[in-house]
């Protein structure tokens, strides 16, 4: 599903965020990506989302070599990757329903289809009753769950999360992680960047450790 081969990422200011990164993730696998802040976790996720391009090496997602994807094709590629952000990046000027519907709207789905899928996604994260509220009326944990609903609403085969529990207390964090595990159980490949080692250690998943842009522990596979 996901394959990095000797990937370097150097930013224009000279900072080398990733050095010789190689690892792969099987279809249906779930893994954590850990490391101190600045270790390159976010950069690695950005490469998968094509928010950044690798300086050297290859990133292959679902059999597609990302360096071969033209700028104009990026939107279509992104529709197959769900992303959850630490600050969830919800739009506060529209309802929960509209926020979750965004990925379907940009893909041009028809309104009936959108209604069905949005409610299914909200149901999965347990917030079906809040569809008419705006995100600001929700708690931090609920906002993050809306972010997750938005990431999975178009059923992407790959789900990425960047510090999804960064702002949440341990109990809520655990709930969120359980949600990711649920999606993984139905076949979604999940990669979560997190530095919450205590939480990660409680879960039976592979842990890939980054340090100063290098993989110091690839977890059990590779």
């Amino acid at each position: 599903m996901l394959q990095f081969s000797t990937v370097d990422k150097r930013y224009p200011d000279g900072h080398e965020a990733l050095k010789q990164v190689s690892f792969s993730l099987e279809r249906g696998e779930m893994a954590f990506l850990t490391g101190h802040s600045g270790a390159g976790k976010s950069t690695l996720l950005k490469l998968i989302m094509l928010m950044e391009r690798a300086t050297r090496g290859q990133v292959i997602v679902g059999g597609q070599n990302l360096s071969a994807i033209h700028r104009r094709q990026i939107p279509y590629f992104r529709r197959h990757v769900g992303v959850v952000f630490q600050n969830h990046r919800l739009l506060f000027d529209r309802s929960v329903y509209d926020n979750v519907a965004l990925p379907l709207e940009v893909a041009g789905s028809n309104p009936r289809e959108i209604g069905k899928r949005v409610r299914a996604a909200l149901d999965k994260v347990g917030l079906l009753s809040k569809e008419k509220l705006t995100p600001i009326q929700l708690s931090g944990g609920e906002q993050q769950r809306i972010g997750i609903a938005r990431a999975v609403v178009n059923k992407p085969p790959l789900l990425l999360a960047d510090e999804p529990t960064g702002n949440l207390d341990p109990a809520l964090s655990q709930e969120i992680m359980k949600l990711f595990a649920d999606f993984n159980r139905v076949g979604v490949t999940v990669l979560i960047a997190s530095h919450d080692l205590e939480l990660i250690s409680q879960m039976p998943y592979r842990v890939i450790e980054l340090n100063q842009g290098r993989i110091v522990d690839p977890g059990y596979s590779d």
């Binding site: 997602v61 197959h80 059923k155």
Partner: peptide, 13 residues
């Protein structure tokens, strides 16, 4: 989920 998640990147939404 309502239906099984699609496994191929090429198909999707």
């Amino acid at each position: 989920p309502a239906s099984p998640v699609k496994k191929k990147v090429a198909s999707g939404a």
